Structures are given as structure tokens and as C-alpha cells.
Amino acid sequence: MAAGGDHGSPDSYRSPLASRYASPEMCFVFSDRYKFRTWRQLWLWLAEAEQTLGLPITDEQIQEMKSNLENIDFKMAAEEEKRLRHDVMAHVHTFGHCCPKAAGIIHLGATSCYVGDNTDLIILRNALDLLLPKLARVISRLADFAKERASLPTLGFTHFQPAQLTTVGKRCCLWIQDLCMDLQNLKRVRDDLRFRGVKGTTGTQASFLQLFEGDDHKVEQLDKMVTEKAGFKRAFIITGQTYTRKVDIEVLSVLASLGASVHKICTDIRLLANLKEMEEPFEKQQIGSSAMPYKRNPMRSERCCSLARHLMTLVMDPLQTASVQWFERTLDDSANRRICLAEAFLTADTILNTLQNISEGLVVYPKVIERRIRQELPFMATENIIMAMVKAGGSRQDCHEKIRVLSQQAASVVKQEGGDNDLIERIQVDAYFSPIHSQLDHLLDPSSFTGRASQQVQRFLEEEVYPLLKPYESVMKVKAELCL
């Protein structure tokens, strides 16, 4: 049975990233139509530049190519590739079939990587351009969430054990800070992308030097003109047959890092959902379990974690691919890159769409948070109580021993009897502590235990987050809708 299948058929496997999760716009960027249309555009740009620099290419040939950029006979191309065992030459023939007058000058002087690699770089750039505003929107939604809850005390956790208090907004800023680093890295790697350009079979530009009869300047002009037509500021000066596969490492490393950030955020949300302090959106008709109707599973956060793990592992592909590119190139890269580049971007696209949807509907339960604080705060307040007693004339050592005994009794009630923490009640009825009984409410005010959390939130948002989001103001209103 021949390899390949009808990918629109229910009898043929289709990647869930495309069929179930990723956005239509990201799927289109990695589609065959987008790819092969870009090949034709690159052939047109090459012909236009070659004509401008004096090669015998007519206006009629150029116009014929322009008129057929979208006229792609995919069936013919597939048949040609089956016959020739070469995808680029299959599309040269297919393009030439609908451009008979231009057929002889299509791909003039070029090698397969002229269309293959340059198209990949265009796709990487455009895919990054799709991700950047999506990530900015996630940051914006979380920034709104953090600002609104900047002063809401909550129990902090280290080692997932109760620690000092923080605020809900401050905790959210930990998430935002990681995503801001990801946004900066995505922008950097996007701006650092260079075009492969017009380089020939081993990167020496020998074929173009021959076409222009040894004119170095025209060869350099050709490279520059096509690079500018493709919208790049610069091209690699040095290439082998391909652009260095280190570029793929750079791009997928940034995406993998984004995956790590999203995994951490969504894990926190899942843990908070278990504590009943916070939940992701839950639709009115949504079913959490087929057997347990009360369940409210954090399905979206779980999906993000599941896909983020996949995204983090994909960076190993370009690392290994770059390491086995012998001399000017081997074909070890080809099949692998067809999979890992598309999957990385479709996965990143999915987790950003999902995280935006989550961040637009996060639900906080202040009463649950308050109750958990009441359970733990008495123990945390013991040092403040000791200091207040010393100020009232008591002995630190005597007070410490009193607190120690009462704390152990209260802990026994919590752990052995399943009761509430009654340390404060014990202190309130103990005559030894009568000098500070009137101060206990103040000493137990949760806001006095959150330090500068709310001020940190305000400063972080104003100095770091809002300036970073400013270039994306025009796209901030787009909502994230999930079908599944």
C-alpha cells in the first residue's frame, strides 16, 4: 500500500493539533497551500530580480507567473513527485505547466533550498508574528487579574506546605514575570531571523556568478533584492546548502521555554482548584465526569500541561538535527523538520489560546482563602504575639514557653481530632496574655502579614508589564474561544 493518505478522510490519521486544537490561522501558515504558494512567490521574486539585473526574462513571463501564483494543481504535483521522487522539481514542473512561456526560467540558477529553506524562514517569521500578540493578550488578562487582587491576602506555599502570606495578585505576578520573559525572547528570536537568500547549491553562489558572467556586484544585488522582497532586513552571508540548523534550535528553545512557563502556571491553577481557592472557567453544560456528576475538573489547565510537556520535548529534535548536518548538509534534517517545526508552533498556539481562555474567566473564592488563612495564621502570628507581650512588660522566655504549650495543644486538636485551630481562643482565655487581649485582632490582621506584596504588584505592572504590552494595544480586544 502506498504511503500517505487522504487526510480529510475519517479513515486516515490526522494530527489532533490540526484537527482538534490549533487555530485556523496557525494551521494555514503550515498548510501545503501556504507552503507551495510561497515557493511560487519566491520563484517570481527571483525572476523579477534577475530581470532587473539584466537576464533575458520578459515582462510577459513575469506576468504569467504572477497570474498563476494561486493556480496550484495539487493532484498534478503529487503525481509528479511520485514520478520524480523530488518535491521541488515536482512543483517546478507543475508551475511550468500553467506558465508555459515562463517554464524555462522558473528556478533559474537556484537549488531546492532556495524555495525550501527560504519558505521555512518566512513561515517561522509569520508563525512567530501570530504567537506574539496571543502571548501579549494572556499577559494582559493576567495583569488585569493581578491588579484587581493585588491586596487580597492568601496563604503562600513553599514545598506545598503553608508559608508566609502573600497576595493573590502577587502570586499571579510570578506567572506574568515568566511570560514577559517569554514574550521578550519570542520577539528577540523573531527579529534575529535572517533570510537564507540566493546562495546556490553549497552556499557559494557559483551558479549565479556564472549567470551574471562573473559580476560579483550583481550577485550581491540579486541576494539583497530577493531578501528585501521577502520582507527581511538581512540575509546570511555564510550558508551551506541550507541555512544553519542552529536557527531551528533557537526558535524551538524559546517555544519550549514558553511551554515550561505555561505548565507551571496551569499546575498552580490545578492545585488551587483542589484547594477550592480558584477555578478555571466551567461552562453551564460542561460535564466533569461521566460517573461523578459533582466533579469540576480543571480540564483546560490539564490540557495545557499535557501539550506543554510535548512542546518542551520537541527542542531535542533540532538539537540532534543540527549535530548531524555533515559538511554542507545531509538530508537527516528533512523529514524531522517537516514534523517538529509545525508541531512546535501548533502546540504553542494551542496552549496560548487555551491559557487566554482560562485567564479571561478565572474565578476566585475569597471566603475559602480566608478560612485557610484562619487555619494557619495563628501559628504564624506567634512571633508577633511574643513581641507584643514583651512590649507590655512580659518575659520573652516565659511567653515563648506559654505559646509553645498552647500551640501544641491547638495542633493536637487540628491533627488528632480534625478540629479547627483554636490557638487564639486559648490565648484569649489565658490570664497571662490579658495585657494584649485587646491587640489580638490587630495582630491577626492578614494584611499585616503580606509585606509589600501589593506595592510590588503595582510597581511591576507599571514599570515592566504595561510598557512591554504597549506595541500590542491594537490587538488586545480579541477574545479566545474554545470549541473543545
Rank of each mutant, 00 (worst) to 15 (best):
S23V: 11
L252K: 04
P435T: 12
I287F: 02
E360R: 01
S434C: 08
I436N: 12
T38L: 01
L69A: 05
P100A: 05
L255A: 15
T330D: 05
G169M: 02
L152G: 08
L135G: 14
T267A: 09
Q41C: 10
T167L: 00
Q61H: 01
L121H: 02
E48C: 11
S448N: 08
W326R: 06
E376L: 08
F36G: 04
Y13E: 03
N185K: 09
L377P: 02
E148N: 11
I237Q: 07
R270P: 10
S301G: 14
V457S: 04
Y34R: 04
E343H: 11
E70D: 15
K229V: 15
R83S: 05
N126S: 11
M89Y: 11
S261K: 07
T244P: 01
I351A: 10
F236Y: 12
C173T: 07
L132P: 12
L128E: 12
R303M: 07
A136C: 06
C399K: 05
S253E: 10
V414M: 13
L128K: 03
L258S: 11
P56W: 02
K170F: 00
H91Q: 08
C172I: 02
S301Q: 13
Y432V: 13
M387W: 03
E79L: 03
K187G: 06
S67Y: 07
G156Y: 08
L314E: 10
R190Q: 05
A2I: 06
P298H: 09
E376W: 12
I176A: 08
I351L: 11
P298R: 13
L183P: 05
T313I: 08
Y114D: 03
R338Y: 09
G231S: 08
L275W: 05
R196E: 03
S290T: 06
R37Q: 13
D73F: 14
A22N: 12
I122N: 08
T154H: 03
Q164T: 01
P298S: 14
L484A: 13
Y432W: 13
K229S: 13
T313C: 14
R296T: 12
Q177F: 01
A18W: 13
Q286G: 05
D191E: 14
D73Q: 03
R338G: 08
Q375N: 04
L142C: 04
R85E: 00
G418T: 06
S31L: 08
K233A: 06
T330G: 02
P153H: 00
Q456L: 07
T267E: 07
C304E: 14
G116M: 11
T350S: 09
T158L: 11
K284W: 13
K134F: 08
T204N: 03
F282D: 00
G231E: 14
R426Q: 14
L142D: 15
H97E: 11
L132M: 04
R303G: 04
F232L: 13
K391R: 15
D223Y: 01
E80C: 12
L271T: 08
T347P: 14
E220R: 04
P100N: 11
P446Y: 15
E302Y: 01
G231I: 12
V413Y: 11
H263A: 12
L124A: 05
S261T: 12
K246F: 04
G361Q: 09
K264M: 07
D398G: 07
A103L: 05
N126L: 00
F232E: 02
L193F: 06
T166R: 10
R37A: 15
S253Q: 12
K470P: 07
K295R: 07
D32A: 12
R125G: 14
G169S: 07
M316I: 07
A410G: 08
H86Y: 15
V413P: 06
F28C: 13
S447W: 14
K199G: 00
C113E: 06
G109Y: 05
A381I: 00
P100V: 08
Q63F: 15
W175Q: 15
K229M: 15
L124H: 00
F208A: 08
G169D: 10
N71K: 05
G156W: 03
D349F: 06
D120I: 13
L314Y: 10
F28K: 09
P153R: 01
P281A: 06
V29W: 00
L319V: 09
Q416E: 10
V390E: 15
E220Y: 15
L211M: 12
R83G: 06
V478F: 08
L352G: 08
G54Q: 08
N384S: 13
K187W: 03
P16S: 13
C304L: 10
P153N: 04
T52Y: 12
C27D: 01
T202E: 03
I238R: 08
V478I: 06
K264C: 02
Q428L: 10
L252I: 04
R141E: 14
N357H: 06
L362E: 07
S15F: 07
L183E: 01
D117W: 07
E473T: 07
G419S: 01
N357C: 06
L165Q: 15
A78V: 05
L69K: 08
A103K: 02
E370R: 12
L124M: 08
E462T: 00
F282C: 07
K233C: 10
F212V: 12
V315W: 15
V92Q: 01
Q456A: 14
Q177H: 11
I237P: 10
Q63K: 08
G259C: 15
Q41L: 07
G200E: 12
Y432G: 03
L444V: 05
R188V: 08
R85Y: 04
L258W: 05
L252M: 13
L55D: 06
D445A: 14
L183F: 09
K218F: 11
C266N: 02
S474V: 13
G54N: 01
N357Y: 15
E220C: 06
R452Y: 04
I369Y: 12
Q241M: 03
K224F: 07
L341E: 14
K415Q: 00
L255P: 03
R329G: 05
Q286R: 05
V368I: 15
D268S: 02
G451Q: 02
L307E: 14
E48K: 08
R171L: 04
I106P: 03
C399D: 03
N71G: 05
L186P: 05
Y34L: 04
E401V: 10
Y294S: 08
C340G: 08
K295D: 09
S151W: 04
S407K: 02
A260P: 08
H217V: 11
T154Q: 11
S301Y: 03
W326N: 09
D398K: 07
R245W: 06
L121M: 00
R309A: 07
I123G: 02
E370S: 08
